[in-house]
Design a protein around this nucleic acid. Structure first.
Lengths: 339, 339
DNA sequence: TCCTTTTTTGCATACGAATGCACAAATCAT
DNA sequence: ATGATTTGTGCATTCGTATGCAAAAAAGGA
């Protein structure tokens, strides 16, 4: 039976070598074959495992990445979290998760705690950071990468999908479908993601000499989206198509249209979302949407942050990854539409 | 401008006190008002924050809880994660997240890494642990609490909802609704959760002199559930009601029934799920289901694990929390049903 | 075989904060 | 004002591992 926690010194004594030898075997430094086997054997006998915290103290690298996320009810984020976690695990990093509802004070507190834990880097998802906070991280020498949210002049790298282009694609598609009264329930105005999609969409409509008959901020919130839908459909001239700022809200819009207002999608109203979460493909919604390529966004995020950990001097990057329009059944399909 | 990372010694020097004084101010030990202010001032000036890792080394408490979770596509888990994280944050703990698809080797690796990080406790969600692993944790002196999964004789505490009773409630409800050909797409046979619900359900039917016309293991998987649905409905005598082992699969079942087989729910087939994830309340599904009281399960989990951290001698507990049947529109409602 | 070069190894120290101990200062009672 | 307590503080040590340095061992060259 194995006793309780044993240290490198215990192993050293049992193996008849010095503590440094044990350390070297476990940290992959040079060691002769002979001692390596002796040490390994002793370690196994004692159930020894190196203490990551002690190691982190010396090396200054905790191999912990802090992940700050605002909410998990939008399916996009748990999935991103899952992928991020898996990818980082594969690189020997680990994720310390913090929930931080958008709100300056919570985020501040959270980031301070992350700094306390000497995280090697911070990934923020769906969270904005004040410049104050930005500076704190800079001081602590902790690289920050913003996932699915950009922030100009923050000094942080950001990874998003090509939201402006995405908005344009949707505009093109709806116009091609012959829609004449197009409305937009936008993503939260306080987020770059929401703003960019909206801008691309409006610019895209303008290219066809149209303008949205209404734009309402849906705050990325389900209830807000339901309300917005009712407001839109109560207008004297209701829209014949709605572009919704993300899938999560689009589901709410479809529910409201179909069950509450007893309208048909897409016959009465076309609905388009943004994200292409798995749920969008389920038959109940069958939602036409723009895909955010999560896998590639995750890859880019990890690459960016790890590179910056290795070389802090590396300049910040703003990466935008293009995503396709996924045509399903929630919006009228233009005649002869290909691609 | 603040320089780079400063230590308690830097603060001590600036404040004109000893390093111990600084330590005591920040760890809440006794200190005079006078020194406390001096230290606080100096700390602010330097942007000092205590190093959690160093602190953890001395105290032997990392204030990190490891969370092992198998998947996040079932909405139940991200929500649990969110609640767990928030509750633990409030207690000054933090969550190190590990994804571990069910599979002995992954789990082993993950738990070892958790031990390396000296976590104070481990919460497993939807993950089984071998007795080998159990022993390792015991040796390392790390308490383990299993969330939404039980395991007799593992020596770990577990928090679940009252799954057997839940299964019974569903049986009662379906029978009261006059269903005569009841089928069950069960949760993964390898999980206590799946087994208990199934057992309660079958026992409940038996009390009314019925037996399910078929029981298929849906593995908690969407595709498996779709397949099972097709198989059930292709039978010479198809079921008039299906109890599905969790909501996540129930959505798949409803999608398949309605879109693919063009059947009406509940007119042609009643469907009942288990969990009551937010999605179940959305109009598109409006799913009758048994609620797992996440909040209370989370509370119990946290209470259990924190108690065991403080007092390792505390006996393991097996807590089951009762959850109500939430009657919505996906299953025929018995005449005169109250409650 | 002897000397040079390379590889191993142990020693001692460092990382940053917490804490037992002994002493100094402040508080209190008489 | 004096001695008895309580409170506050500094010193030195500790946690478990990594690493620069110097000495020892091994390998290589002639």
């Amino acid at each position: 039976m194995i006793k309780s926690k044993s240290t490198s010194l215990d192993v050293a004594r049992l193996a008849g070598v010095s503590q440094s030898a044990v350390s070297r075997v476990f940290s992959g430094a040079s060691a002769s074959k002979a001692t390596a086997t002796k040490v390994r054997k002793a370690a196994d006998a004692l159930g020894y495992r190196p203490n990551s915290l002690a190691r982190a103290m010396i090396t200054g690298k905790s191999r912990i990445i802090g992940l700050v996320v605002a909410y998990l009810d939008n399916q996009f984020y748990p999935i991103a979290l899952e992928r991020l976690s898996n990818a980082l695990q594969a690189q020997g990093y680990h994720i310390l998760v913090f929930m931080a509802a958008n709100g300056e004070d919570t985020v501040i507190k959270v980031v301070e705690e992350l700094i306390d834990y000497q995280v090697d880097g911070i990934i923020t998802a769906s969270v904005a950071m004040s410049s104050n906070l930005t500076q704190r991280c800079a001081v602590a020498g902790i690289p920050v990468v913003m996932f699915n949210r950009g922030q100009d002049g923050s000094g942080h790298s950001s990874i998003t999908s090509a939201n402006v282009e995405g908005g344009r694609k949707i505009a093109d598609f709806l116009v091609a479908g012959g829609h004449k009264r197009i409305a937009h329930i936008a993503g939260w105005e306080g987020s770059s993601t929401g703003r960019d999609r909206r801008r691309g969409f409006i610019d895209g409509l303008a290219d066809h000499d149209q303008r949205p008959i209404a734009v309402i901020d849906g705050m990325f919130d389900r209830d807000a989206a339901c309300k917005a839908t009712r407001a839109l459909m109560a207008r004297p001239v209701p829209p014949d198509a709605i572009f919704v700022g993300n899938d999560h809200m689009a589901f709410a819009v479809m529910d409201t249209l179909r069950q509450e207002l007893e309208l048909r999608v897409p016959q009465d109203v076309s609905v388009i979302g943004y994200d292409d979460v798995p749920l969008a493909a389920w038959a109940a919604y069958d939602l036409t949407t723009v895909r955010q390529p999560v896998n590639r966004m995750v890859e880019a995020t990890i690459e960016t942050i790890l590179a910056k950990i290795v070389d802090p001097a590396r300049p910040t990057q703003k990466i935008e990854i293009d995503g396709p329009l996924i045509v399903r059944g929630s919006a009228r399909i233009p005649k002869g539409w290909t691609q």
